[in-house]
Design a protein around this nucleic acid. Structure first.
Lengths: 339, 339
DNA sequence: TTGAAAGCGATACCAA
DNA sequence: TTGGTATCGCTTTCAA
């Protein structure tokens, strides 16, 4: 390893250039694999760069080219298998593209999202991927001014900001309700987050209400599991708080599989039989629903595909194809052993 | 909203300066809230900046000051409640510090980690937080050359790269094994990932073997649940593949709670009683362990605290306190209903 | 196939 | 309290 003259200063292309007696410009081309540079020269430069411990400065590149190489992504929570899968789908699809994901978490709050978007925009992302279709006016203003492609995911908003890759959370519940009705269940309860904080959860709730009404079932009872994000524990606590009279309902439709799992295990502790005394359904096809004995009736979503398709949209847009796309990845009802 | 002369060009401090008839330097100071700028001037500049839709360019700042404002973090997987909690602990503790996290996922592979570290370093992070204490030689070389603070988390490496915030995965298993032995269980099996890919899992395995030997128990049988990351499904499949003879063991020590949950439910499907026929233990105090009926015996880790303490270390280091710190956050055995 | 000059937008430093 | 000048490392553009 060669020591550079001033040990505190970083090694730049200029240093490499001096070492091989070439111009920085040629070094720049060589390191990027430019074909116009003599192969032998390229090899020499590569070797010398490695020897000097040269590290490419993406910040300088981003500054010069006015392209950050970042794609900003907001997720409600990273501690959620489905959102994590979407992130992985994005990451995998973007690998090798030179684009790097800049992740922020909104904690299911549109106000936090607004703050986060402001912060992310100062990094000059080349595109922005937002989970959900609900935003504050200020967020919409920021995005309008930013003039970069925006993709909303996990929803099908009425008035998209740009592109969309998602599915209808409301429609997704129709099959679940139809299934329950076909089994003779009439008295339904919905267990989900209280506030307007979780818009996708609220959409599912509305979907259940609409589907029940359409099938002529009595009004659906709402059970409050607390503020989003609602967890396994929240589901279990809500049922435990109600006690054995939870079985006065025929079926408990839960906003997500973790909540359903909590409810299922709370029922067990109460000595209730699922689905004998009470049917339970979830949403999202989380691992816990599939592994649980009994297996939880759920709705499969295509979390990884949402990420992958969003990456496709990005590729299109960066290739100059700016027509707004709306991609519905759908969802599928998955009968289990709890209904 | 005022239109700027060339609508495709971004609004810069110079534009704001011209608009208020001041120098860019004063605008820079004003926007950063520099006290030496006349309060009235500051207000004027702020207003005009907002009016022009000025967005601060962090890339340019990062370039000029040679400080990126990034802290790079590698996690084995983001789809893991404990790692996600650590990330959240970091995020929360760093909020308002002006530092932004740059997240990368290694997929439990040190080779992928090496690649990722190389990529992250081109963004000039001011510090690097690595999950785990095992790295390739090339990774160590890269880190040495980068001359930035490094924190290894979730482990207590023998030869740390810099700072450490973690706990001993091996020691954490001693209480679990002692508990099982005290209940009269002698024939133990360990269910975890096969390869060397999951070093923390391997440390737990070694911890079980060592603790069993120390207590005079017969050799521990290893059961292979496949490549890391091992999931609920892997745990369930491993037990299903073995069948009822799994109950020839007294206790099944699992590398994590999700694996234990999978094993528990597979046992149920086999008609086995847990803990009557077989005791089961997990690791990590995941929600699923606490909500499950029966509750799974586990080990509580301080995932959020790891993140928070790592942020403390960063603050210290940036304040000039460079002495290497090793912080052991420990772990606690949590008896449940499966043992 | 290679090089010289200019400039991306902000701020450190020195001056007034 | 404010301003002028130089500069961070790289790449675009034009020239040789």
């Amino acid at each position: 390893m060669t020591t550079n003259p001033d040990s505190t200063r970083r090694v730049t292309m200029r240093d490499v250039a001096r070492a091989v007696d070439m111009s920085p410009m040629t070094v720049s081309r060589a390191l990027r694999g430019d074909e116009t540079v003599n192969p032998k020269t390229r090899a020499t430069i590569r070797d010398k760069a490695a020897e000097l411990g040269y590290v490419y400065d993406t910040t300088a590149q981003a500054f010069r080219t006015q392209k950050s190489g970042f794609v900003a992504v907001t997720l409600p929570s990273i501690n959620n298998a489905n959102f994590a899968e979407t992130f992985r789908g994005l990451t995998d699809a973007l690998a090798g593209s030179g684009l790097q994901l800049l992740l922020g978490s909104t904690g299911y709050s549109v106000e936090k999202e607004e703050q986060l978007v402001g912060q992310l925009l100062t990094r000059n992302p080349e595109a922005l991927i937002l989970t959900g279709g609900h935003h504050t006016d200020e967020t919409r203003k920021l995005l309008g001014a930013a003039r970069i492609p925006v993709i909303e995911i996990w929803d099908l908003p009425d008035a998209p900001l740009g592109h969309v890759v998602g599915f209808s959370n409301a429609d997704a519940m129709a099959d679940t309700v139809a299934h329950l009705a076909s089994k003779g269940h009439r008295k339904l309860a919905f267990l989900g987050a209280s506030a307007v904080s979780d818009w996708r959860g609220a959409a599912r709730r509305d979907g259940v209400i609409a589907a029940a009404a359409k099938l002529g079932l009595p009004p659906v009872t709402m059970i409050d599991a607390g503020q989003a994000p609602v967890s396994m524990r929240d589901g279990a606590q809500a049922v435990a708080a109600i006690g054995p009279s939870i079985a006065d309902f025929d079926a408990l439709v839960c906003v997500s599989d973790p909540v359903a799992f909590g409810a299922l295990n709370a029922c067990r502790r109460l000595g209730l039989d699922v689905p004998g005394d009470l049917a339970i359904t979830g949403f999202g096809q989380f691992d816990v629903a599939m592994v649980s004995h009994p297996r939880i009736t759920t709705v499969a979503v295509h979390a990884n595909e949402i990420g992958a398709r969003a990456a496709d949209v990005l590729r299109d847009v960066f290739a100059g194809n700016n027509a707004p796309q709306v991609i519905d990845v759908g969802s599928e009802f998955q009968p289990g052993e709890t209904s």
